[in-house]
Amino acid sequence: MANTDEQVVSDGDVQVVAFKLRNEEYGFSILNVQEIKGLTDITRVPFAPEFIKGVINLRGSVLPVIDLKRRLGLEDTPYTANTRIVIVQFDEVSVGMLVDAVTEVRTIDANDIDSTRAVTGSDANARFISGIGKVDGRLIIQLNISEIIGLTGEE
């Protein structure tokens, strides 16, 4: 967790993989992104937490896929041709993240990243967000991967 925070607030620039969820733009630090994959068959896992869409076969290993919209409390949208699975790695755990579309890899100046408190306040989902970057008038919401994966023991 400390890991991602540091990358975001450090002096240097931050490279993020930016993607869309509905009409908002989000980003993961590029250091955590392993690869981006087109939509493949996702197998439902009975009794799994609600935000876990299921599992996929990534070159022979079985990987869980998190429905990021559901995780962040956003409304569902149907799959499109642009739907992607972003494979992220954190603490030796690889997880797929279901997103609506991957837009680009952006470098964001550290000074252009605002802390989250100002915007999200005491929102329950605030823990998922580590900062908000401003690029060319667009806002890219930086996500906190360890909180999203939820291995820190929330429930």
């Binding site: 493949t40 068959d41 197998t43 896992v45 009975p46 009794f47 799994a48 876990i52 299921g54 599992v55 996929i56 076969n57 022979g60 079985v62 990987l63 869980p64 755990v93 690889s94 997880v95 994966i149 939820g150 291995l151």
Partner: peptide, 24 residues
């Protein structure tokens, strides 16, 4: 099923079938 999905009842794991699909 990995750390994230460990300890789910009734599931002993998963397997990749010949057609690339995953089955529990």
């Amino acid at each position: 099923l990995g750390k994230l999905l460990s300890g789910l009842k009734m599931l002993a794991g998963a397997t990749v079938l010949g057609d690339g699909h995953v089955a529990m």
